[in-house]
Computed example of a mutant assay.
Amino acid sequence: MPATTRVATPDGVSVAAYDFGGSGRAVLLIHGYSQSYLCWGKQFEGALPGRFRLAAMDLRGHGASDKPTDADAYQNGERWADDVAAVIDRLGLERPVLVGWSFGGRVLCDYVRHRGQDGISGLVYVGAATNMNRAHAGPGRASIPDMFSDELATNIEGTRGFLRACTAQPMPTDDYEVALAYNMVVPAAVRRVMMARKVDNDDVLAAIRLPTLVIHGEADTIRLPESGRHIAATVPNARSAFYPGVGHSPFYEAPERFDADLAAFVDGLK
């Protein structure tokens, strides 16, 4: 089990951080929209802990973190950057690699925009969203509007549909039930204000000088593979890996390949 730490952020929000220990290079895993650190369970159980200093966090509004409902808490990119910086500082992570899944890709861009690149050693975009390009949004997003509903039955059904779209093949029942539980912890009001934020991070991507890896599933119907290709083409000298037959969750659907690709990337850093 990880060591769990409450981290105070500059605007008074408390976020939950999880430290799995290890003496190697630090890797901070940042989950996606309506998820929690638990989505990385296969990484916690695989070959990465011990080999690297593995850590994760619950984004504000998610998991065990505080859940303010005012729009500015989620639509101001500096807030997201501050949260990540606070976790890095509180856990003592030395120039970590930041790994961002889906909405976590926006958080990575927020960090680079507001905190710069000197304090981190690399970036990994996983099934990532970095802008509002409609051409990158797939049919798997169809259930998301129902996740905004304050009517519980509608909200649950929307969340179920969203989770089904997160993988190319159905999740085992036990995994699906756990994922549904931590998705439902996120209030509808938080989901609404998060999705109301308009962003375009191409300027950030083009200015990245850090080693960057893009991982994307070729069968992703939530954030289409074109999104990953766009990120890889915009970030100078980015490397990329596209997984055939894999959907929106490469780390879950192909954990051994994902862990190997992530490890090789981290091992190759100076």
Rank of each mutant, 00 (worst) to 15 (best):
S36M: 03
D82M: 08
L29E: 03
Y37W: 11
R60F: 01
G46S: 12
W80E: 04
Y37L: 02
V84M: 04
Q35L: 13
P68S: 06
R60E: 00
V84A: 05
D72M: 14
E45F: 13
V84H: 00
F44C: 12
G46E: 10
E78L: 13
G32K: 04
H31G: 01
A81F: 03
R79W: 03
T69E: 10
H31C: 03
E45P: 12
W40I: 00
C39S: 15
A55V: 01
G77A: 13
A55P: 05
L59I: 07
L29Q: 00
R60Q: 07
Q43F: 06
G63R: 03
A47E: 14
G50M: 12
V84G: 01
C39G: 10
L59R: 05
R60S: 07
D82Q: 13
G46D: 12
L59G: 04
D72L: 14
Y74T: 10
W80G: 05
A64H: 14
A73D: 01
Y74P: 13
P49S: 14
Q75P: 12
I30Q: 00
D66K: 02
H62A: 09
A71M: 11
G77Q: 09
I30F: 00
R51P: 08
Y74H: 13
N76A: 11
D70F: 03
W80A: 10
K42P: 09
I30K: 00
E45R: 15
H31P: 04
R79G: 09
M57W: 00
P68W: 00
D70G: 15
L38V: 11
Q75G: 14
K67M: 05
L54S: 08
N76Y: 00
S65I: 04
L59H: 05
N76G: 09
K67G: 04
K42S: 13
Y74K: 11
V84P: 02
A56C: 06
V84W: 00
K67D: 04
G46A: 12
Y37H: 15
E45I: 14
G32R: 02
D58L: 00
H62D: 08
E45A: 15
A47P: 15
D82A: 15
G32D: 05
A56M: 03
D83V: 03
G32C: 09
I30S: 00
T69Y: 02
D58A: 07
F52E: 04
G63Q: 02
R51E: 11
T69H: 08
S36P: 06
G50K: 12
D83S: 09
S65V: 02
W80S: 10
P49E: 07
P68I: 01
A73W: 01
H62V: 04
Y37G: 06
R53T: 04
G41V: 08
S34M: 14
A81V: 04
E45S: 15
N76D: 14
D83M: 06
D70S: 15
G46Y: 08
Y74M: 10
P49M: 10
L38N: 08
Q43G: 13
D72R: 15
A71R: 15
L28W: 01
D58M: 05
Q35S: 15
G77S: 13
A71K: 15
W80C: 07
W40V: 04
